[in-house]
């Protein structure tokens, strides 16, 4: 069965189409990377797949369930690390984890063990009782990753999970995720702007631009197709080198604002 089945998905905001007639399949147990320039529609697609946004048209099935009409079933099957912050700053690291475990109905005994395991994994166990608002950006990111992995979902969505993390943490984190993928057959759907990550980890890569997939295959396939020597070059060959500055600045601006507001 396919973990993710997207058919002719379109999402418009006013007159602007963020996602246009997008179709793709992700088989169970695959690691699938969704790459594209800023504003390509990656996060919008993830929001639709995870029931946060409703599609304008088209169909989405997660583990065979419709993400429009069977939202509750769909929500049981995935975990997600969002691109933007999603922690409760007024709670401690431990409390954020615990609330997540309860929301996902992880039985208490497993929950306690797993929270400790995950917090140790991201090296936040010693700081578990500190309020999240006092954490650095990287620490918050690590906590979000730990939280997303807490309930061992069938599918894991990661929207630029490694944004702002140092190389050690990045490689450490990917190792763990690849191991989960192997041991539990967890399907991984991720986006990133670090091409070497995608090239090393993903079985299949889809390059999106302006809301549609313009190329799909393994890193090797994409390089062969474009006659280039690395995924980065293949990516540039496929998407052109025009900077998507308008989108980039507006999203970056928004993130900046969030940070500033968050800090107060």
């Amino acid at each position: 069965m396919n973990s993710i089945d997207v058919r002719h998905l379109t999402k418009t905001f006013g007159s602007f189409s963020a996602v246009k007639d997008l179709s793709f399949l992700v088989p169970q147990g695959e690691i699938f990377a969704f790459l594209g320039p800023n504003g390509a529609g990656k996060s919008t697609t993830i929001k639709i797949l995870t029931t946060l946004l409703s599609p304008t048209s088209g169909e989405v099935f997660i583990e065979g369930k419709s993400s429009v009409t069977q939202q509750n079933e769909v929500r049981k099957s995935f975990g997600i690390v969002f691109q933007d912050p999603s922690l409760d700053d007024e709670l401690t690291a431990y409390e954020n984890m615990e609330l997540h475990g309860v929301l996902y109905r992880v039985p208490p005994v497993i929950r306690m063990g797993r929270i400790e395991e995950m917090l140790r994994f991201v090296e936040l166990w010693d700081r578990r009782d500190e309020l999240v608002k006092h954490f650095s950006g990287g620490m918050k990111r690590r906590l979000e990753i730990a939280r997303g992995l807490l309930h061992h979902p069938k599918i894991l969505f990661l929207d630029e999970p490694t944004l702002g993390l140092d190389p050690q943490t990045r490689s450490h984190m990917w190792q763990y995720i690849v191991a989960l993928n192997k041991q539990e057959g967890m399907t991984i759907f991720f986006t990133t702007h670090y091409m070497e990550e995608a090239s090393k980890i993903a079985h299949t890569i889809a390059i999106v631009d302006h809301g549609t997939i313009i190329a799909q295959g393994s890193a090797h396939d994409l390089q062969v197709k474009t006659g280039t020597a690395s995924l980065e070059e293949a990516f540039l060959a496929l998407t052109g080198d025009a900077i998507r500055d308008e989108d980039a600045t507006s999203t970056d601006q928004m993130r900046m604002n969030m940070r500033i507001r968050g800090r107060k």
């Binding site: 029931t51 999603s86 968050g262």
Partner: peptide, 15 residues
């Protein structure tokens, strides 16, 4: 919760 992002965490939960 919406502005600080935590609402997303609640809205995707199977609750």
């Amino acid at each position: 919760d919406r502005q600080f992002g935590f609402l997303k965490e609640m809205l995707v939960a199977p609750v």
